[in-house]
């Protein structure tokens, strides 16, 4: 086996050391710094992007929160307005209702008074008609002219009894 020929050992070890050292130099001075730089740069860019995304997300959240508070404030304000308007409307309506019912009550009272007066007038005229009729009947039957005061009294008491 050529592997166990000691005459080649010195050369192999020598060139192994030389070439390994050369490769170490290539790796340490060229490959590692360059690739490391690329990877660092990429990691930094990605980190920056992530940071910016986080920052923007924070801003978005803040804007959203501000919107929510503004929205709820506006909602509260709108509710207050609504309640104020409703109260106004209710007051006006109550006032109108009170006015209308007052005037209606007044009209009803007037109408009732008129009806009562008309009824009284009607009753009075009925008494008068009854008195005159009674006087006319008495004159026709007896030929006497009865005292109007006595007739009125008699009719009134007769009507009272009839009722």
């Amino acid at each position: 086996m050529p592997q166990f020929d000691p005459s080649t050992f010195a050369s192999q070890i020598f060139w192994l050391v030389v070439m390994f050292a050369a490769l170490y130099w290539v790796v340490a001075k060229l490959a590692v710094p360059r690739v490391g730089q690329v990877l660092d740069q990429r990691a930094r860019v990605i980190q920056d992007d992530l940071d910016r995304a986080m920052q923007l997300k924070g801003e978005t959240d803040a804007a959203l929160a501000a919107y929510e508070t503004a929205m709820s404030a506006a909602r509260g304000q709108a509710g207050d307005h609504m309640r104020a308007i409703l109260a106004d409307v209710k007051a006006v309506a109550d006032q109108r209702t009170a006015e209308i019912s007052a005037s209606v009550a007044k009209q009803v009272a007037e109408a009732e008074a008129r009806i009562a007066k008309a009824k009284q007038d009607a009753l009075d005229s009925m008494n008068k008609v009854a008195g005159e009729s009674a006087s006319a009947i008495v004159a026709k039957l007896t030929g006497l002219n009865p005292d109007s005061g006595a007739v009125t009294t008699a009719v009134a008491s007769a009507l009272k009894d009839a009722r």
Binding site: W15, M19, L30
Partner: peptide, 30 residues
């Protein structure tokens, strides 16, 4: 000592040269 440059040493040289070439060229633009 016999420190002759042999076929073994030549392939070690190739390995070094290939690595240098690969990393040298591929990371030129970064």
């Amino acid at each position: 000592y016999d420190l002759s440059y042999t076929n073994s040493a030549m392939f070690m040289t190739f390995a070094v040269a290939l690595t240098a070439l690969l990393f040298g060229l591929s990371t030129k633009k970064r």
